[in-house]
Computed example of a mutant assay.
Amino acid sequence: MTARTLAALVVAGVTLLVGGCASQPTMQGDLVIAKQGSFFVGGREVRSDKMSMVPTVTAAGTIVVDQMYVRYQVPPSAKRFPIVMVHGCCLTGKTWETTPDGRMGWDEFFLRKGYGTYVVDQAWRGRSAWNPAAINQVKAGAAAPDTLPTLFAAGQEPAWAIFRFGPEHGKTFPGMKFPLDAQAEFWKQMVPDWFNALPMPNPTVPSLGELARKLNGAVLMSHSQSGIYPFQAAALDTTGIAAIVSIEPSACPAVTSDLTPYTKMPILVLYGDYMELSPRWAPRLKLCREFVAAANARGGKAQLVVLPEIGIPGNSHMLMQDTNSLEIAEWLSKWLDGALRTGG
């Protein structure tokens, strides 16, 4: 690429074309990145004499756990506030990357929109290390089996309903837009989850606040299990949290809690379709509606949006991977631009 071509791309931006349907944007052109890299936030050292059960590896030693992995990309002339993207249960930062059927992920979309993107792996997930000592203690006979940490994995059959692909495994909701032809690739994203073995708040929570402060301000965008994390981070310290975008949160702050922190930044709670058809999700939507109303009654700038109510139907729990994911991202980028410009 010539210097003239590169300069033209930076000045003019990436051309926005319409592909597939009138409401589904497709971005084309070279992706221009000013800087990228990765680092960790948080972490603590732990020592054990049962770090290994492999004969050729010394058993005793010290490791670091509770750290949160962060991979970032920043475009030229980046907007003031970057977006920190936090995945949900049984997943990693892959959630925000290339979709199972090979389309652009939200990490790239928002990068092309001018936002720095910081994609994390929660503590004890993905590239954020976990502590094997408790398991090795039991294997060595030095601890009782009931001391084992609680670890789980979501099987494809129950996850089908949890992610609202349909009411039960193998059945789909009418018009549901998750790319089921590529579901084999989606299931490869699933990983074991240590959530129930970790202290509260999850170590990821203070790390999110630390990252927001390190960046001198950031949008915290969470999903599902991590939906509550930005709120928990704000309850600890609102410094650096420019906005909260909680996508399909499994919980919102209780209306009986101190809502003061949530009046200090614009907040969006976003849900997809088929909510009332899901015994798991309908009560969560109700409680989040109550939270938004209570926060606004105290002077907050919170908004709850259910996509079919604004004319975007068919979305599953994994709406950032659905076939209309870029349509949603385009809507969300406009919401962010407005909220960050006006403070809500």
Rank of each mutant, 00 (worst) to 15 (best):
E248K: 05
P201I: 06
V18Q: 13
P179W: 05
A294S: 12
L16H: 12
P308H: 01
P55E: 13
F195I: 11
R127L: 12
L91A: 14
A293K: 11
I63R: 05
E248P: 04
P149G: 06
Q122N: 12
A218C: 03
G37M: 10
A12C: 08
P82R: 02
K171V: 12
V138F: 03
M51F: 05
G217N: 04
R47D: 11
Q67M: 13
P283T: 07
R80I: 10
N216V: 09
L268I: 14
Q156C: 07
G42M: 08
V18T: 14
P266K: 11
A293I: 14
S23P: 02
A133F: 10
A159D: 08
L180Y: 08
A142V: 14
W281P: 00
G61W: 10
C90W: 08
G13C: 05
N136T: 11
G311S: 04
G170I: 10
I310R: 06
G344F: 10
L270K: 00
N131P: 02
R112A: 11
G299P: 03
F81K: 05
E276N: 08
G338W: 11
D193I: 08
L211T: 09
G61K: 11
D107V: 09
A78W: 03
A7G: 12
L259I: 10
G170P: 07
E210K: 10
I228T: 13
I267R: 00
R289W: 02
W96G: 06
P167Q: 00
T239I: 02
D30G: 15
T256I: 06
G343L: 02
A212C: 07
N136H: 13
V219F: 04
A8C: 10
A242P: 00
Q122M: 13
P266E: 10
G272M: 05
S23V: 13
V120I: 15
V245G: 05
P82V: 09
R289Y: 01
P75E: 01
V219G: 04
M200W: 11
V86F: 01
K94L: 14
M104S: 12
S23R: 12
V46H: 01
V219S: 06
L198F: 02
L259C: 07
Q303C: 06
I241M: 05
V219L: 03
G61S: 14
C288G: 07
I247G: 03
L236V: 14
D322C: 04
V205C: 04
A212F: 08
L16C: 10
P279E: 04
L268K: 08
V41F: 01
H169P: 00
L148G: 11
K301Y: 15
R289I: 07
N196E: 15
G105L: 09
